[in-house]
Design a protein around this nucleic acid. Structure first.
Lengths: 332, 332
DNA sequence: GGACGCTACTGGAACGTTCCAGGCCTTTTC
DNA sequence: GAAAAGGCCTGGAACGTTCCAGTAGCGTCC
């Protein structure tokens, strides 16, 4: 009967058992046309009976391709990543590519280690959904395999394709919405010094100035949420607030209600990202939505063209969309 | 100088450039003691200069080990998974193992495909954090590599180690808490027919009967949330509700408030899982917490012992913990 | 001064695939 | 009826490592 070996059966075991060469087993399993129907079914039967599974390591070694792409995220619990990954995997599956996800656990160092592991393991390409990695790390990785980044890099790395949302337009839409409701005193609680935050901040300022209004920015990192609410309580203080992201936006709503400041009666709040918390909080948060699944699909598209030999580095910007909910109302 | 080849340099390129045999390069890179200091630094310098990276496919092929374990989750956006993964990765990193995550996107079929891909890619073991896979799929996979499951399987598969929380004790704690607050009419909104839900349901019934009270169960799938609230509105209806999970618990709170039923004044609510939504909702949800990170660490421990040759299948049960918040109060 | 042992190194065989150049047959073609 | 073509199959080389059995050189020991 079959080999008594305890380790996994190989193509050679199947060949011996079926009475053919290992080459023919390889051809039969890959569905090559030049194998007669009779032999093919016999080989497949034997393979099935022995519990044969093709060894992807060996295949990857000789082919130089593993048909697997790596996805890198810095924080699993953030639903933003889940949506982008969804878009990517939809496309990947359709193209017959597998995906593995590496998790940075909020640390650039861990993320970089995962990136190296994946490249060593021979993934065909990598999509980084995180703004944590510095340009040098990205460039070094991109020298080994095609790499696409979703989000906004600190400094633009060469050799890396980028998919991002148009933060300037998003901020403009948020501020425009508040202006349309009659607000004139609008404060911005900025999220961080990263590229996306910087873009939102300067677009906010520009939009305000274009409307003939004075911008006013506080930093979330410096306790900006309570600073902003202090301002609101004051006479002639802001009647609306553009938060740099939904986390800040929901914090603003919670703290306002705790201080008995009505939302949106006394202050309107707009966030950015359309995360789940924003939908659940009461009043539900008006926010700007990044087209996350579309960004994922776009990233996969760029990666595929790079894998197929296209050497060109691309930068794609997708349009965000305002989602109006209950946290914004007409100016008091 | 170096080879003009465009493809990645191999150990042979390094050997030629350094004037030694490929075997010695291999030894030097792996830090073997039998290499003189002078040669070692020379070899490492050359490797660095050429941009050499060890090919994990080739290494895995000959060693039969890749030093990577696979993690399988069915839904990335569920923070439950993130916490378990956190516990697993903490341990894995400490042991020098890499991790890759496979994503089932809510479908058992996709999850099974990812499982196969990972096994083909030669992971040293797999941890499945999902109750979606049937016993047969699990068993087939476990025949190829060590497999540990976190959660409660439908039917107990042979050959698979299991880490789970003690749902019976958790339900007992929840009901006990309500009894302690003076409630006697407690309805249970059950979540599903899966193993964990079944255990919670029967433990609820048992605890009620042990206290000399009549259990009353409605199914969330049959609109149990509004059924339960209908009962509450009635005279002599329940004054407390044990929800099968936090999703149901938060839905209960939302809908109650919408119907102007006070929580916890008119009805106390307890959930299960301690998810983030439960913390954010107002009033914040009293719930039962599974020791997620500990479950992850335990799973990794079991997997490691299996990888190291231990053939024994284990089942570990960890104790849940009651988290009291604002959604429960004394009976009216 | 031969046996021994140590240190530092080497060459070739494995690992499980795919790829390539061919080798039979049988059938078709002129 | 010989040559060409096509269908089906085979053996060996490659992929980039690790592992194993040596080997050369050199000092040590009695």
């Amino acid at each position: 009967m079959s080999t008594p070996s305890r380790s996994a059966p190989t193509i050679v075991d199947v060949a011996r058992e079926a009475g053919v060469s290992k080459s023919l087993v390889s051809l039969a399993i890959r569905g090559d046309a030049g194998v007669s129907d009779a032999t093919r079914t016999r080989i497949l039967d034997v393979a099935d009976r022995l519990g044969y599974h093709s060894n992807a390591l060996a295949r990857g070694l000789v082919k130089g391709r593993t048909q697997v792409v790596g996805l890198l995220v810095s924080d699993l619990s953030n639903p933003y990543f889940a949506d982008v990954v969804e878009g990517i995997e939809e496309d990947a599956t359709a193209t017959g590519l597998g995906t593995v996800i590496g998790h940075g656990r909020g640390s650039a160092e861990v993320l970089a280690r995962r990136l190296d592991e994946m490249l060593d393991l021979g993934v065909d390409g990598v999509i980084v959904i995180s703004a944590m990695l510095d340009a040098e790390t990205l460039d070094r990785a991109a020298a080994r395999r095609p790499l696409v980044m979703v989000g906004r890099p600190f400094d633009a790395p060469r050799r890396v394709s980028v998919v991002r949302n148009h933060d300037e337009h998003g901020a403009q839409a948020a501020v425009g919405h508040l202006l349309g409701l009659g607000h004139t005193r609008i404060v911005h609680v900025a999220s961080s010094r990263r590229a996306a935050a910087t873009a939102r901040r300067s677009s906010y300022k520009e939009t305000m100035r274009a409307a003939g209004l004075e911008p006013q920015v506080v930093e979330a990192a410096d306790g900006g949420v309570s600073q902003a609410l202090d301002l609101v309580a004051r006479d002639g203080g802001p009647t609306a607030c553009f938060a740099g992201n939904d986390r800040i936006g929901t914090a603003l709503i919670h703290d306002a209600l705790e201080r008995r400041i009505d939302v949106p009666g006394a202050i309107s709040v707009v966030g950015y990202d359309n995360s789940e918390v924003g939908r659940l909080v009461r009043p539900a948060l008006t926010t700007v939505e990044q087209p996350r699944e579309a960004m994922g699909r776009e990233a996969m598209r760029l990666l595929l063209s790079r894998i197929d030999g296209d050497r060109e580095v691309a930068e794609v910007t997708l349009e965000p969309r305002l989602v109006v909910r209950a946290s914004t109302g007409t100016a008091r």
